[in-house]
């Protein structure tokens, strides 16, 4: 049922005398406001208080190693953060990490969701296995991948490489960022599969059958029926995964510590290392605000692109 017909139905129902309508409307608005305000207030406080403190810290000299020396320094912290070698690396790595993981999880997610859509023997177990990585905590998946799978001497990948007579690769030394992308993708592909699998269930089978009878091949059906049906779920996947991928932290913390050099340092990790490893709260706060601005630009672009998809009914 489409929402607009429901709304029409409601306005048709509630059309008694003009005075009760006005009183009703007032009560209506008050209930609406009262029920939404706890969440809005909680999030407002959650956003404004720390943000105001961060802005304040970013304008003073504030190093935990030198207590008491909290002079106002203006935009100095921003200058140092933005010209720091780590910033460019951090920004680019964040972009790579988010972009590559999104691409991998959408493409793999769609293919897998289509693959498991037709019934076959053991599909229930296959589904459970496919979504399992989503239940694994990031610290665990990072450690398992690093030590048990990608380890250059005793890892499973090394054994496979040896089996085919190739030299095992030291992933975290030679392709550190790609290794992180692999781990993060392993965690987030299942989420895409989960959402897209849900979406596939509502695909009109008769439409597919009709297209097949008209002589459309599987690829044509995929492009013209399946993919358009998945546009909105894909938008949701992109939206939610971006939110989580922008602040990837535990995977880097437990595997590379941002290294070698700055090769796997994203903005989240860069700010963390400034605040808690170099104790420079002032600069970390400036960095935090830069990250907030970048995240908001990303949010703005995303919402412009797909926000319509999320709140409006087709």
């Amino acid at each position: 049922m489409s929402i607009s017909t429901v709304q029409d139905g409601v306005s048709a129902v509630s059309a008694p005398g003009p005075t009760t309508v006005k009183a009703d409307r007032q009560l209506h608005n008050r209930v609406g406001l009262l029920t939404v305000s706890p969440s809005v207030l909680a999030l407002l406080v959650w956003m404004i208080v720390p943000l105001a403190m961060t802005i304040y810290f970013s304008l003073i000299r504030y190093n935990l190693l030198y207590p008491g020396d909290n002079e106002f320094v203006g935009l100095e912290n921003y200058y140092f953060f933005l010209t720091d070698e780590g910033f460019v690396h951090g920004a680019l790595n964040t972009l790579w990490l988010v972009g590559a993981t999104l691409l991998i999880s959408v493409v793999a997610g769609v293919l897998i969701a289509v693959l498991v859509d037709t019934p076959f023997w053991g599909r229930g177990i296959v589904r459970v296995m496919l979504i399992s990585p989503f239940f694994i905590m990031p610290t665990v998946s990072a450690l398992v991948w690093k030590n048990l799978l990608l380890h250059p001497v005793s890892g499973v990948f090394a054994a496979v490489w040896n089996f085919f007579g190739a030299t095992p690769v030291d992933w975290f030394a030679e392709y550190p960022l790609q290794a992180i992308i692999l781990i993060v993708s392993w965690q987030w592909v299942p989420f895409a599969v989960l959402l897209l699998m849900t979406a596939m269930q509502s695909l009109d089978q008769e439409q597919k059958e009709a297209a097949r009878l008209d002589g459309a091949g599987p690829i044509a059906i995929f492009w013209h029926i399946t993919l358009p049906h998945l546009t909105r779920p894909i938008a949701v996947v992109v939206m939610i995964e971006t939110i989580f991928l922008l602040s990837i932290f535990a995977e880097i913390f437990t595997t590379t510590g941002g290294g070698p050099g700055y090769e796997t340092t994203n903005l989240a990790y860069l700010i963390y290392s400034q605040a808690l490893l170099q104790f420079d709260v002032g600069m970390a706060s400036a960095g935090g605000l830069v990250a907030v601005v970048i995240a908001n630009i990303a949010a703005f672009i995303l919402i412009r692109m797909i926000g319509k998809n999320l709140t409006e009914k087709a």
Binding site: L43, L51, L246, A284, A291
Partner: peptide
């Protein structure tokens, strides 16, 4: 409230809520 008491601001409130989720936690850790 958002589903049954929709106002002009409902959609922007929802998107604003989601945007708070985009703040990197490190930004407010200290």
């Amino acid at each position: 409230s958002m589903a049954f008491f929709e106002t002009k601001r409902t959609k922007s409130t929802l998107l604003w809520m989601l945007s708070t989720k985009m703040l990197p936690p490190v930004g407010v850790l200290v």
